[in-house]
């Protein structure tokens, strides 16, 4: 949205856009510190922090020991007492080690204390499959955290959003969990220069259409857009919604689209069962948009298995463009 408003933009990768946001925050606000494993001279497991330690020093770009639980707790305690920490996990899978601090502490402290304190912590989670890293380094756990009141959980999908949502997360007084798909880090795009924020609670229509609503999250947005392009060649105009925020879910953008198309396809990489597709489906079914549905809702999610190592198996474990194409076509042409 900012890119269109005459603001100067620069081409950046998704990773560079995140670094740019952190650079701006470190420069503008003394309270901001980065914490994480190997984020200093190493530059981060995915080279997201890069050279920030050279510009802002090791006291503000803090290498932590390999202590996910402790690191998360330190970030929470620091956030409660005046700092605005950004904690990088090397892989989102390691959130499981820190669940105590994320779920029991960060999410609940404000509520448990009757609003006496806020926890303005930002945690970044490189997530998703496609790198051949197998079962313990490829998960998509956003729905786990999305289940916890007190957290905000987002999945930016473009360099512009990655920067804007990180700056918005830093502005936010509450814990914000950012899931970054590893395969997006090299994705290039025009990014506005300087400070701007992107809402943490708004989905966005990436492609307008009237035949079927495709709500996608994370990297699936790009796959869904690819599928929608192919469908358009057959005259089927799919509307692709980039969910962006898992918690809160932008109800109105989705319902409005479903009222228009009458058909809903949810696409997400995380395991299908008990995931965000179930939430969105139920949300639609419980709403007035139900009466506009002209076909059963369809979910495409990850297979009911850990992410496998073999590249063909790895692809088979998560939705691919062809799957989206088939499902959207069947829905749009009244065959489902």
């Amino acid at each position: 949205m900012n890119a269109a408003a005459g603001v100067r933009t620069r081409e950046m990768s998704y990773a560079e856009a995140i670094r740019d946001a952190m650079d701006i925050a470190l420069t503008e606000d003394e309270r901001v510190v980065l914490m994480g494993e190997d984020i200093g001279v190493y530059g981060g497991a995915f080279q997201v922090t890069g050279d920030l330690v050279e510009r802002h020093g090791p006291d503000r770009v803090i290498d932590t020991p390999i202590s996910e639980l402790g690191g998360a707790g330190v970030a929470v305690g620091a956030a409660m007492t005046g700092l605005r920490p950004i904690l990088e996990f090397q892989f989102s899978d390691f959130a499981t080690l820190a669940m105590e601090q994320i779920v029991n502490q960060a999410a609940k402290v404000r509520y448990m204390l009757g609003g006496a304190v806020s926890v303005p912590v930002v945690m970044r989670f490189p997530a998703g499959s496609g790198t051949g890293a197998a079962a313990q380094h490829s998960q998509s756990l956003e729905a786990w955290l999305g289940h916890v009141p007190g957290l905000k959980v987002v999945q930016p999908t473009t360099p512009e959003d990655a920067k804007g949502m990180l700056l918005a997360a830093l502005d936010d007084p509450d814990p914000v969990m950012i899931f970054e798909h590893k395969l997006l880090y090299k994705l290039k795009g025009q990014v506005p220069e300087g400070r701007y924020t992107t809402p943490l609670d708004k989905a966005v229509v990436r492609r307008a259409g009237d035949a079927v609503t495709v709500v996608a999250s994370g990297i699936m947005v790009h796959k869904a857009l690819e599928a929608a392009g192919q469908l358009a060649e057959d005259g089927i105009e799919a509307e692709v919604i980039d969910l962006r925020s898992v918690r809160p879910i932008d109800r109105e953008t989705i319902l409005e689209s479903v009222r228009k198309t009458g058909r809903l396809l949810c696409v997400y990489e995380a395991v299908k069962t008990l995931g965000i597709g179930a939430e969105i489906s139920a949300m639609v079914a419980e709403s007035d948009a139900f009466d506009f549905l002209d076909a059963p809702i369809v979910r495409l999610g990850g297979a009911e298995c850990p992410i496998p190592y073999n590249p063909d198996l790895e692809k088979a474990a998560v939705p691919q463009i062809a799957d989206i194409l088939d499902a959207a076509r069947a829905l749009a042409t009244g065959r489902r």
């Binding site: 707790g73 929470v76 305690g77």
Partner: peptide, 10 residues
Amino acid sequence: LPIAVGAALS
């Protein structure tokens, strides 16, 4: 315990 360390870091 880690929260106390965070407060000390602040």
